[in-house]
C-alpha cells in the first residue's frame, strides 16, 4: 500500500487505481491522484489554477459502479472507489474526443503533449471527410437551426482571426470551447466577465456582448484568458506576428521568474525571452500571490525594458 500526500488534508481514503490500492487524501480529485502517481492523463479544459470545468471529456476514467465514464478532473475520490484508466472504453473515448476536436478545430498550436496524445490514441480526423470551407459569420447562425448537411464535408469552426486591438488576437478557428478563458475572465480570477459562451450546440462560441470587438467590451486586457488557452486561440499580438512571420521559436526561448515592477502586490512574472526580447509574460499557476493570473501592466507593461536594436 502506498501513501500519496497531496497538500495538507489529513484524512485519507482508500482507492484502487488500475489494480493498485492507494491511500489518498479525502477531497482530492481522481486526477490529483493520477497526476501524483505519474499516471499520464490527457486534459484540455483542466488547469491547476481553475475550478474543474468538466467540458472537454478527455480525462475520462472508468469508476466501478458507474454506467458511464467519469471525468477524473472533477470527480472526488471516495473510500473504496475502484478506478481504471487504461481500458478499451477509456481509450476509445479519449481517442474520439481528440479526433472530434481535431476534425473541427485547428489544433496545430496546441501543446506538444496534445500532439503526442493524438498520435498515441490513434486519432484520424480525416475519416470525417474534407473540412468545410471557412465561414465569416459563424456567430450569426440562428439558435437551434442549421442547414441539413449532405455529409460531403466535415463541419468545423474555421473563420478569420479577430485582430481588433494592439494587445491580443482571438483566433477562434483554434477554439475548442474549453471555457477556460470564460472562467479566468470570470469567477476563477478576474471577475470582469467580458466574455461568455454564446449560441448553442455546435454554434456555441466565446463572445463579448453582441459578438462585438474587444475594445467595446468590458475587457481590461489582463490576458488571463491567454494564460489559460490551451490551443493558441488566444494569444498576444506579439506572438501572433512572430508566428505569422515564421519567427516564433519556443525552443530558443528562456523563461526567467521575477517580480513585477509595478504596484506593491508582488506578482511573480515569468519572462519569456527570445533573442534578447520579451515575447511573452506568464505567471506560475501554483504561486500564492497570483495563482497564475496577472493584470494588464504585469502581462504587457514591459515595453520600457525592451532593448530594441535601434534603441
Amino acid at each position: 500500500m502506498t501513501t500519496v500526500l497531496l497538500g495538507s488534508i489529513s484524512r485519507l481514503v482508500t482507492v484502487t487505481v488500475d489494480g493498485r490500492e492507494l491511500r489518498v487524501p479525502e477531497g482530492a480529485t481522481i486526477l490529483d491522484v493520477l497526476r501524483d502517481r505519474g499516471v499520464e492523463t490527457p486534459t484540455l479544459c483542466w488547469a491547476p489554477n481553475l475550478t474543474p470545468i468538466n467540458a472537454c471529456r478527455v480525462c475520462m476514467v472508468e469508476v466501478e459502479g458507474s454506467r458511464v465514464l467519469v471525468p477524473s478532473c472533477a470527480r472526488k475520490v471516495e473510500d473504496g472507489m475502484v478506478v481504471r484508466t487504461d481500458t478499451e472504453k477509456v481509450r476509445h473515448s479519449r481517442r474520439m474526443v481528440l479526433e472530434l476536436l481535431a476534425s473541427s478545430v485547428d489544433m496545430d498550436q496546441a501543446s506538444t503533449d496534445v500532439q503526442r496524445w493524438m498520435v498515441e490514441y490513434g486519432v484520424d480526423p480525416a475519416r470525417y471527410g474534407p473540412p468545410a470551407p471557412p465561414e465569416d459569420d459563424r456567430a450569426g447562425h440562428r439558435v437551434g437551426h442549421h442547414h441539413a448537411p449532405d455529409g460531403s464535408t466535415a463541419a468545423n469552426v474555421a473563420q478569420p482571426v479577430k485582430v481588433d486591438n494592439d494587445l491580443y488576437v482571438r483566433d477562434y478557428a483554434r477554439c475548442i470551447l474549453c471555457y477556460k478563458c470564460v472562467k479566468a475572465c470570470g469567477t476563477d480570477a478576474q471577475f470582469t466577465f467580458a466574455i461568455s459562451a454564446a449560441g448553442r450546440g455546435f454554434d456555441a462560441h466565446i463572445a463579448t456582448e453582441y459578438d462585438g470587438e474587444l475594445p467595446d467590451s468590458a475587457c481590461v486586457y489582463c490576458g488571463n484568458c491567454i494564460g489559460v488557452c490551451p490551443t493558441g486561440a488566444l494569444k498576444s499580438v506579439r506572438e501572433h506576428e512572430l508566428r505569422e512571420d515564421g519567427d516564433w521559436r519556443p525552443e530558443e526561448q528562456t523563461v526567467t521568474t521575477t517580480i513585477c515592477s509595478f504596484c506593491g502586490v508582488g506578482c511573480n512574472l515569468e519572462l519569456h525571452v527570445q533573442q534578447g526580447s520579451i515575447v511573452n509574460v506568464t505567471s506560475p499557476s501554483d504561486h500564492d500571490v497570483t495563482h497564475g493570473h496577472l493584470c494588464i501592466k504585469g502581462r504587457f507593461g514591459f515595453q520600457h525594458v525592451q532593448n530594441l536594436p535601434d534603441a
Binding site: 472537454c56 472530434l100 437551426h145 442549421h146 471555457y179 459562451a197 449560441g199 450546440g201 455546435f202 456555441a204
Partner: peptide
Amino acid sequence: RDESCGQCVPCRVG
C-alpha cells in the same frame, strides 16, 4: 444537433 447545449465535446461535435 440543434438541441445540444454545446458544452461537452462528445455531444457538441458527435
